[in-house]
């Protein structure tokens, strides 16, 4: 896949690690010699606890930091699905979190109007508690191509096979497998650069992150293969 200009929206709850997905994508693209813009938490959808990362990746110089339609849209909670509907177009790669467990949500009122400036502490978010939910898939009438809509139960995979904290890295792997926006190798390098200090201090954590990236990649690759063979 050799698309010229990728517009990517990742949205989710505070504590899901949405911004890190955006940062790693942009950093990886930059390191791979591409043009990239990452911009956190802007746009009308951003209210209360929903965190949005907007990324653009291209071979040529980039224009405005904001855009209207996404080539890749990754809503990671029920609320994020609702608030990013406007970014969907017919050929959007739609990657959603398909676990049956909802991420803890911070209420708008709890967060306050300027709280996006300070990232909500994960513990604060987790303290609110989880509850069951339906997977955050898009409404049936959005007109997406079936092979461009992929659900991944990343929260459940993280809990069962890895650690809850690498949920977002599983999603990152899924994004790469579904869209081909960047190669797995590029993002491995970008991730290690971005998390450099943390991972150097903790080799176990480094392995955990690399496995999470692979796991997300493998899950989606397998799902696409099954879909194609059906």
């Amino acid at each position: 896949m050799n698309k010229k200009h990728w517009r990517i929206v990742v949205a989710g709850e505070g504590g899901q690690g949405v911004q890190l997905i955006g940062e790693i994508l942009a950093e990886s693209a930059f390191r791979a010699g591409k043009e990239a813009i990452y911009i956190p938490n802007f746009g009308v959808e951003q209210r209360g606890g929903v965190s949005i990362a907007m990324v653009q990746i291209a071979e040529q110089a980039l224009g405005a930091p904001k855009f209207e339609k996404a080539d890749i849209l990754v809503p990671l909670s029920e609320r994020a699905v609702e608030r990013t509907l406007a970014y969907i177009k017919r050929d959007t790669f739609y990657i959603y979190e398909a676990s049956a467990i909802a991420p803890p949500q911070l209420l708008d009122a709890t967060v306050g109007i300027q709280a996006w400036e300070t990232v909500a502490p994960e513990a604060f978010s987790l303290a609110v508690g989880s509850k069951p939910q339906a997977p955050s898939r898009p409404p049936a009438d959005m007109g997406l191509m079936p092979d461009r809509t992929i659900g991944i139960p990343a929260a459940e995979i993280a809990r069962a096979e890895l650690k809850p904290r690498v949920f977002n890295i599983i999603i990152l792997g899924a994004i790469l497998a579904a869209s081909g926006v960047l190669s797995l190798a590029m993002v491995q390098e970008g991730m290690l650069a971005k998390l450099g200090d943390k991972l150097r201090r903790d080799p176990e954590l480094k392995q955990l992150n690399l496995r999470a990236l692979d796991r997300g990649w493998a899950y989606v690759t397998e799902a696409v293969r099954r879909e194609t063979n059906r």
Binding site: E27, A36, I37, F42, L62
Partner: peptide, 10 residues
Amino acid sequence: DGYQAKMREA
């Protein structure tokens, strides 16, 4: 502006 302040680019 806020975009230029907060966004990352090369």
